[in-house]
Write a protein that binds this DNA or RNA. Structure first.
Length: 289
DNA sequence: CCAGACGTTGTT
DNA sequence: GTCTGG
DNA sequence: CCAGACGTTGTT
DNA sequence: GTCTGG
């Protein structure tokens, strides 16, 4: 699953990492404890109607979005298909929802069923997005036992396919029954990568750079999408244990992702459940091998 | 027909 | 909005 | 995901 | 135990 993540990049760095134009109005900030209902940047494909400006009949020769800007309306209209950063609230609120509270229960969507579920299928067909993250958290809870879990932090291992940023496969909606239009998103999950199964049997779908534009392009054939919804390949992620402070959403410090020593009992429980040995954990275990 | 759900996770 | 259950 | 509430009346 | 809010 994916119920908590990080976005540690400053605005300029995130814009560069995603090769996207910033339409968040400078609202991008570092966040080491992104929880459901947080408002965060997502990446969508620029659509012909998105700008509200005059539609450009030539389809892509124009790549100089940053030149010649002036004060006339529509002067900064982007090329269709360009990646754009926008703000949205985590927890998808379907267009038909009577109130926004349903979003709290729509933070993840199963990749296996997302095409047919009433809450997600229209977004899946037309409003796919990337959710930029620098890592995410999972809680280890010994089989059915202990109340409190041991949190782990998963982060990019410098694999060429992802670099320093992770892009979760997401969907977004715009809910128009409130006073203001409300943009929301959800994160797709799939079966866990091999090395992550000791924590959970589900993981967020992480898209390689080569798949980003295909995923967010509304014109992509649905048959070509399913191939993208796979567990993270080997070597993409590292993991290490972190302190329990991350559990409280009010904690936002940079130290939340710092590695901590594992409790002896927790170490044993992890090994008993088929997880990595303590020596591997203390080194930052490679996930997905 | 109307009323009510529309979701995932984990746990048993 | 659309599907399921009664 | 975890943490924290889970309720009403009346009074300030 | 289960739901809501962050």
């Amino acid at each position: 699953m994916c119920g908590r993540y990080t976005q540690k990049l400053k605005s300029d760095d995130l814009v560069a990492a995603m090769s996207a134009r910033d339409e968040t109005g400078g609202a991008i900030r570092e966040n080491t404890n992104v929880a459901p209902t947080s408002t965060m940047p997502i990446v969508v494909a620029e659509q012909p109607s998105d700008t509200g400006a005059d539609t450009d009949t030539d389809t892509g020769a124009d790549t100089d979005a940053d030149t010649g800007a002036d004060t006339d309306a529509g002067a900064d209209a982007a090329a269709v298909g360009e990646r754009v950063l926008r703000l949205a609230t985590w927890g998808l609120v379907p267009s038909w929802a009577k109130d926004r509270s349903i979003g709290a229960r729509m933070i993840n969507a199963r990749a296996e069923t997302v095409a047919v579920k009433p809450a997600f299928r229209s977004a899946y067909a037309a409003r796919r997005c990337l959710v930029p993250a620098t890592g995410f958290y999972e809680w280890f809870r010994p089989g059915g036992g202990a109340r409190r879990g041991q949190p782990f932090y998963m982060y990019p291992a410098g694999h060429p396919a992802t670099g320093d940023i992770l892009a979760f496969a997401g969907l977004y909606e715009v809910w128009r029954k409130g006073d203001e239009p409300l943009a929301t998103f959800t994160i797709l999950t799939t079966t866990a990568a091999e090395g992550l199964s000791f924590l959970h049997d589900r993981s967020p779908v992480i898209l390689p750079v080569a798949a980003w534009d295909r995923w967010i392009d509304p014109a992509t054939d649905p048959a070509d999408l399913t191939a993208l919804l796979r567990p993270a390949p080997a070597g993409v992620l590292l993991a290490h244990p972190v302190g329990t402070a991350v559990g409280n959403v009010r904690n936002k410090g940079a130290e939340l992702t710092d590695q901590v020593e594992l409790d002896e009992a927790v170490t044993e429980a992890i090994e008993e459940s088929g997880g990595p040995r303590a020596t591997a954990l203390s080194a930052g275990v490679v996930i997905g091998g």
